[in-house]
Design a protein around this nucleic acid. Structure first.
Lengths: 117, 117
DNA sequence: TTGACACATTCCCATATGGGAATATATTTT
DNA sequence: AAAATATATTCCCATATGGGAATGTGTCAA
C-alpha cells in the first residue's frame, strides 16, 4: 500500500504547503482562479489541481459567474483538524506549567540564599 | 516533484492515520514499542518506521531502558498545526453565528404570524 | 559464548503524488 | 462562426510512500 490519497481526508489535503497557502488566501472572500495564480505565483494547471483536491474534501466552495469561477475557503472543513490538535493542548500547557513552576521555585531558592547572606 | 516527505513537517507526518493513532496512544505516558504493536495491531517494523518519522519531526521522545525503548508523545510538536487551524476558527464561528441568527429570525417571524392568527 | 528478546533498517513493490506541457471544455466577445 | 479568455483535465515522469519479508543491531540471560 502506498500513501493515502490527498483526497482521503482533511489531514492529507492540508499536508501540501501550497494548498495551505491557497486556503489562507481564500479565507477572506471568494477569488477567481486567475487571481490565485498571479498572487501565489503558481501555474494555472497546478492551481486547478489543488483546488480540485480542496473541493473534494470540502475545504473550498465554488461559484460560477460567466467564464470565471470564484473559490472561497469553507472554514468549517478545518474543524476536525482543529479538534484533533486540541486534544494535545492540555498536555503541552501542562508541560509549560511544570517548566514555569520549576523556574519560580529556582527563583525563590536563589532569593532565600541572597537574603541569608 | 513528488509529494513532500513525511518528515518535512508536522502536517505531513500527521497525514498518516496510523501515526495519529500512535500519537494519541502515547499521549498519557511512555510505552515500549511492543505495547504499541499489540495494542494498535500493527507489525513491529511498521511501528518502528512510523516512530522514526514521528521522531524526525519532534512529535515523540524516546528513552532507552535495557533492551526496551520507551516512546512518548511530545505534545508541543502539535502546536504549529493547532495554531494554523485556529486561524480558521473565527471564520467558522462567524458562519455559525449567521446560521443561528437566521434561525432565530425565522422563529420570530413564525411566532408573529401565529399570534396574528 | 550462545540464545533469546526488543527494535531498527533494508529491500522490493504497488501506488499516489505534484509539476510541466499539451490539450480539452465552457463561455464570452468580435 | 471564429477568436479569445478562463478554467479543467490528461499524459508523462521523478520521487516518496507504506506494507511485508528478511535481515541487522544491541542488550540481557543462561
Amino acid at each position: 500500500m502506498a500513501r493515502a490519497a490527498t483526497t482521503s481526508d482533511v489531514f492529507n489535503a492540508v499536508a501540501e504547503p501550497r494548498r495551505r497557502e491557497i486556503l489562507i488566501f481564500l479565507l477572506d472572500g471568494e477569488r477567481p482562479v486567475t487571481e490565485i495564480v498571479t498572487r501565489l505565483r503558481l501555474e494555472q494547471p497546478a492551481v486547478s489541481k489543488h483546488l480540485r483536491v480542496l473541493r473534494d474534501v470540502g475545504l473550498v466552495r465554488v461559484r460560477r459567474n460567466g467564464r470565471h469561477k470564484f473559490y472561497r475557503t469553507q472554514a468549517e472543513g478545518i474543524q476536525p483538524l482543529h479538534e484533533w490538535a486540541s486534544v494535545f493542548e492540555r498536555y503541552w500547557s501542562r508541560q509549560l506549567l511544570r517548566v514555569k513552576e520549576r523556574a519560580e521555585q529556582m527563583a525563590r531558592a536563589a532569593n532565600a540564599k541572597t537574603e541569608s547572606n
